[in-house]
Nucleic acid binder design. Structure first.
Lengths: 123, 123
DNA sequence: TAACAATATTCCTTGACAGGAATATTCCAT
DNA sequence: ATGGAATATTCCTGTCAAGGAATATTGTTA
């Protein structure tokens, strides 16, 4: 997973720009106006987004038209996908564990509320 | 979309921690060792992840066991989902456009390679 | 070419953040 | 209570990024 995607989106105004561009490409001026940013700051943020590959630009006469790029979001999506799988597994494991615990609880009272106390340290 | 998720993941070592925790919960020492971090830095990064809600901690005797939390990733996933929809729409629109263009290209040669030149500015 | 519109870049200052080193805290065992 | 292990916090310093203001650049039009 490319970290620059995260750092690009970690800035509030940049995230706002991205969400604005969701409605379609826009030139710098329109972005600055709608988000109430100074034009230079808008340009600077767009530069960062451009370098991060989140956005592409297309020159149209005087205007520079900024448009969302799909790739980084797809990468993000793929990254998340691996997490989803693991969660499903873990959720099942947790359910099993709680099931056993519930039964056990009727007898002893040791380790109440504990989860995964079988951690091993390979120092 | 909560920005703190992005800023938390924007730091390389923190992203490594998250990916490490994918294999299951770990105490600070193990994390520091595997990622070759100083223990204090590991603690500090875990603090940030904790504040961002990416991780939860469970005290076990001397050890503090850190474990991934699902919520922020689910939120991220939901956020991405809205993007996917828009992309599909846009992709279709693009395909249509290219289709028309291809046919047109056989006759005239105007506007070759152009994409969406119908941008309008509502200033 | 001159004036103008749209955008980009530079310089400056300030605040946030990461790592290193030292120290504090917490919990267990004896 | 004392010592020690695991972890957290603090202080310090250097780096980096963001906003403001001014200016440079690029393209258009008369």
């Amino acid at each position: 997973m490319d970290i620059t995607t995260f750092s690009a989106l970690a800035e509030p105004n940049r995230l706002r720009i991205v969400e604005l561009l969701l409605d379609g490409p826009l030139p710098v001026g329109a972005i600055a106006e709608r988000l109430e940013l100074q034009q230079p700051q808008a340009s600077k943020h767009l530069r960062v987004l451009l370098d991060a590959g989140l956005v592409e630009v297309q020159a149209m006469a005087n205007r520079r038209n900024y448009k969302l790029r799909l790739d980084p979001f797809q990468e993000l999506d793929a990254w998340l996908k691996t997490y989803r799988v693991v969660w499903d597994e873990r959720f099942d494991a947790l359910e099993n564990y709680l099931q056993k615990l519930k039964l056990k609880e009727h007898n002893t009272n040791s380790n109440s509320g504990g989860i995964r106390n079988d951690i091993q340290n390979d120092n």
